[in-house]
Design a protein around this nucleic acid. Structure first.
Lengths: 233, 233
DNA sequence: CATTAACTGTGAAATTTTTCACAATTATTT
DNA sequence: AAATAATTGTGAAAAATTTCACAGTTAATG
């Protein structure tokens, strides 16, 4: 539709995380933050944050921002209330990332991990709507007390199609992960967040996959530690 | 110690994930893979994989690899058994990333998420040793049946120091996350993998933090979907 | 009201990372 | 034994991303 210029991937990912942080800061009752503060909180250099934020300029409205007009959201200067106003910054990032209208999600696999995610507060906040959760065990389904509609796994395709579910969160055992992913894809899912310890293969390039891997994180951490050790001695 | 040239971060992170994948492929009984296959499996272009792998050359041994000697691990040519031999490639990556000697880890917080991680097979594989898990609830500690030593949270600092635990995995409720992280840092932890839905602030630059955030992943996914929607219509 | 201090915003430079393109290699086929 | 097909490895070019440095802004201070 809008042919908004697309963001550089690293910027997009940092903004997506920043968006979460801004919500937290708002809940703490703050009004504004500086790029320096955000830098400390996020572990990203302050100039990188300002640069990222400068992408919000594009498509800010119909006002012709020619030349050296005032363009940004941030308020320069010292003293309280300077920096970026939380409220408007958050709205702006939300608009840029398309986080304004709610997305539907489903959760597949109600083991310990699945239940942990089922109980997350994020589903109460309204931005993401968990409209279904699936499991193989009838027993499990009956035992769980939640407001989220629960279904037997055999109903996966039907429910995903019916509610046009966009995002699938995979918390099934590793053996079942690939097959479940295939089923989600066939049912028309648009994105998958995979918590199962497998490397998913999804051919369709219409479907985005984010792998969250404990083993991967451990390896990355170890490798950085190892590099540190090389340097420090 | 070794002053090994440090890897570009994107390469390091891809190799760390590749290492996991190679283990899986080995378990499937395969002997070798091509960069093209890895490309499909990992969703990374094949030339990027080959380039990444080319960093393994450095410090491959004392052989002086002058000129156009045979240097790589991969076997060119067509037919079965061509490409990269899984075994030796995995060993080489492991050596480069310092994944050869086991690392100690602890798990803090034994709610649903914690227990899910406690039961992961990775702790049986020998590369990472989960030497302690903590929780506040005595009840919970008694109920759990596992070979991993369980402790009350009050013993955190003592146990971390005693066993020189390097990596902490945080699966506590959000309210407790920052304080727990502070305690881990004070006790001398070297890295933290944070699964709690908060943005941790860790001043010490001796300590590495990896945040695993459902909200972050959801936002990233949504943003990419939104960009796709802009293009497709 | 001039000065100071603490910020933002950004074009341009520097750096890093990815992509390209193709020579070299080797099993398999003809 | 020549041709073919599939594959690695890598310098060099291209592209992307980060860093720099500083002009411009504004509340607070002296």
């Amino acid at each position: 539709m809008k042919k908004d210029s697309t963001l550089p991937p690293p910027t997009l990912e940092r903004l997506a995380r920043l968006y979460v942080l801004l919500g937290k800061l708002q809940n703490q009752g703050l009004q504004a933050v500086s790029s320096k503060r955000l830098s400390e909180l996020l572990g990203v250099p302050d100039h990188t944050i300002r640069k990222d934020l400068s992408f919000l300029r594009e498509g800010l409205g119909t006002e012709q921002l020619t030349g050296k007009e005032k363009t940004g959201v941030g308020k320069p200067g010292s003293g309280l209330g300077r920096g970026y106003p939380l409220e408007s910054l958050r709205v702006l990032i939300g608009a840029k990332l398309g986080l304004t209208h709610p997305r539907t999600a489903c959760l597949v696999g109600l083991g310990n991990l699945g239940v942990a995610i089922l109980n997350r507060r994020i589903w109460q906040e309204g931005v993401y709507r968990l409209v279904a959760a699936f499991d193989l065990s009838e027993n499990r389904l009956e035992l769980l007390s939640t407001k989220i509609p629960l279904y037997h796994a055999r109903e996966l395709e039907g429910v995903v199609r019916k509610y046009r579910i966009e995002i699938g969160i995979l918390t099934v055992p590793p053996e079942a992960a690939q097959e479940t992913a295939d089923r989600l894809v066939r049912a028309g899912i648009r994105g998958i967040i995979n918590f199962a310890p497998v490397v998913l293969t999804v051919k369709s390039n219409r479907v985005l996959v984010r792998n969250v891997s404990l083993a991967g994180e451990l390896n990355i951490l170890s490798a950085y530690l190892y590099q540190q050790e090389d340097v420090d001695g």
